[in-house]
Design a binder for these strands. Structure first.
Lengths: 169, 169
DNA sequence: CTGTATCCCAGCGGATACTG
DNA sequence: CAGTATCCGCTGGGATACAG
């Protein structure tokens, strides 16, 4: 989000890169990639806008309508996402039409896809089937998401060890 | 979040399952698994609490300290996560100590792991290396995350087709 | 069609104080 | 150690109106 505020008192010096977070646990802002990722994307609405982008939405109106937020909110969150580098506004021109701008995923934004895929799979599994299916265009098989180690093993929660994390407390 | 509010005006009848969202796009609350997943987890803080749970944190104080939120906030979000079914409070007793409660991941919560893994990988790749490494306990290899289809192909953004989504607009 | 400006409300979160 | 109670400010978000 790269915004000020939200976390009450904190010196400017503690704000690194994507920002803020508590001096008590220096861990947060400096190191934790999850914290930084959530921070970079922003709010719930931003997540949904990213979803729309993956679904192929490019026009402002469609973003607002399909995500179900008001125009001012859509404008603000889209701007945030552009600032964060996940989306970009590119001009285009349909034949015979005037010049327009559309929102498109940057490489950084495109690479966010596994997060959305993982969320989709989890939601379908634990919150009841949604009736929505995502298929691989090339082969038609359904798309899943998960974690694995570089040796190729699937990795579940608890199968991991962390290194490089600052001592807690 | 399973909370009221936030979305201004909307009849109770439109609130389905995990809640709220705009009647304009019936799609939201009913179908979109991503919207429901984000909704179920809740806020930024809830994400970070889930991260801590995966890192092995079980005690209230540690959650508050390591996530960097005040006790009231930690209490509220942890309660939400328990209500949502991601965490559970289980009693335990160390020898010679009094009875305690600890927060533990439910199966539903454990299965959220791929989302966190994907966020971690994305954060490290696009927001700069964090210095944190997650390794597979069994083999020591680093853990990644991504999407693939059931035929085994890796799937990137744009390689997908959606089915079952209500017509937008 | 693609936004911006303004006003208002409500939830999240910080701080402090207090209980078991 | 594990919370709860209270107060208060900030940001996100809805609604409406207006602009390029």
């Amino acid at each position: 989000m790269v915004k000020s505020g939200t976390v009450g008192r904190m010196s400017e010096a503690t704000v690194i890169m994507t920002g803020k977070l508590d001096p008590r646990s220096g861990w947060e802002a400096r190191s934790c990639p999850i914290a930084r990722a959530v921070e970079a994307v922003g709010t719930r609405t931003a997540f949904l806008l990213m979803r729309e982008a993956f679904y192929g939405t490019t026009r402002f109106d469609d973003f607002a309508l399909r995500v179900g937020v008001s125009e001012p909110v859509a404008a603000a969150r889209l701007k945030d996402l552009v600032t964060a580098g996940l989306l970009e506004r590119v001009p285009y021109q349909d034949p015979g039409q005037r010049r327009r701008l559309e929102y498109r995923l940057t490489p950084m934004g495109s690479d966010f896809f596994p997060v959305l895929a993982a969320l989709m799979r989890w939601g379908d599994r634990w919150l009841g089937p949604s009736g929505v299916q995502m298929r691989h265009r090339d082969c038609g098989a359904e798309v899943g998401a998960g974690a694995w180690c570089e040796a190729g093993h699937p990795v579940a929660a608890g199968d991991t060890e962390l290194a490089g994390r600052p001592a807690p407390g």
